[in-house]
Design a protein around this nucleic acid. Sequence first.
DNA 1: CGGAATCCCCGATGATACTG
DNA 2: CAGTATCATCGGGGATTCCG
Lengths: 140, 140
Amino acid sequence: MQREINGRPVIETARGPVLTPCAPGSVLARLGDKWTILVVSMLALSPDTPMRFGAIRRGIPDISQRMLTLTLRSLERDGLVARHYYPEVPPRVEYELTARGRSMLDPLAAFTGWIRDTWQDIEASRKEFDDVERSGTSAN
Amino acid sequence: MQREINGRPVIETARGPVLTPCAPGSVLARLGDKWTILVVSMLALSPDTPMRFGAIRRGIPDISQRMLTLTLRSLERDGLVARHYYPEVPPRVEYELTARGRSMLDPLAAFTGWIRDTWQDIEASRKEFDDVERSGTSAN
DNA sequence: CGGAATCCCCGATGATACTG
DNA sequence: CAGTATCATCGGGGATTCCG
């Protein structure tokens, strides 16, 4: 039978297991980029009413207009976000998570919950690692 | 009280919610990079016995020696992977997940499981989106 | 207001060669 | 075998400007 880990088929060979490169990687790469999780988080805060572009932007202090536009476009392309355009003057554009987008929230929360519970330990390990590295290279 | 989403504190303002930029982002960014999940997956395949550098490398067809070294170093720095160096000739180096690293597997699997169950729908949405875009820009 | 277009920079990643 | 050093490349993403 076929083993699998993290959505990836595993081929057993004489020299050991080999992971199959496959499509889920491109999904993970998109969701793991600099802004996507933050944008999804903003939309998740307002599950019942769509959010305006400007409201999302104000919720993510450091995002540029360009990157918010691109991120929302990617999410829309993936069917995770719906875009509603109202051709008024000035124009109004609203976004909301689709059913598929909402279906991601619980699994995502499981993972970000682990991060929330662990990141302080990780930070401590990083500091220790960097300190040892510095003292190890003491001659410098 | 303080709301929170995906590990991120939410500040309520008159103009709407604002996400707090915070450290968990750097953890998510590291784990979401091109190779980390694959390396963790390889090590997870062998929970009881450490894996040699070369075995990990063979399991991830397209990774370069350099990127595997860098990725393992980052994971070691974060306390997620332990490195064992045996100064033989030729040298042998083995890696394994730490307890902290193993504690990540279930939450991670929750998320990658969602991807595994959803990516075909996402692929379909992408294709449709791209087709509509092409026909919409029909003049070109 | 929301977004497209342009320019530009830097860091992530790959290829290659060398070392203990 | 595992790791480091160096160089080249490519794309993410920021700043700015113009558009409907």
